[in-house]
Amino acid sequence: MAKQSMSPQPLTPAVFHILLSLADGEKHGYGIMKHVELQTKGGIKMGPGTMYGSIKRMLAAGLIEETEERPDPELDDERRRYYRLTAVGRKVAVAETQRLTQVLKIARQKHITVCS
């Protein structure tokens, strides 16, 4: 399938969190979802539609790829599909992180900070 270009940054929260989730290794859909939920302390709860819609677009843009390797079928359901980050996906994640860092720096310069 021809790669489609993802829209320029900023990435959507769902896409960015999926990228972050896959940064430390391949995962299946439910694994990604739980990881995102844990990372954001329940702030982002993706449903199957949002999750696989984002995955579809990320696959098309070449940010992630499906892995052929499967765990032992006795340990896992064979219907699960595993995804991992591509080199392009890692670059995009780094670029988005840099962008957010820059935004945070500007906010701090303007003394816009979160009061706890």
């Binding site: 439910y30 539609g49 696989y52 579809k56 219907r79």
Partner: peptide, 21 residues
């Protein structure tokens, strides 16, 4: 309710995810 190509490609994975949920 999803487009046929979408549900065809991701349908079973989505069902699996929902069942896990």
């Amino acid at each position: 309710l999803y487009p046929r190509d979408f549900s065809g490609e991701f349908g079973s994975a989505m069902i699996q995810l929902f069942t896990d949920q």
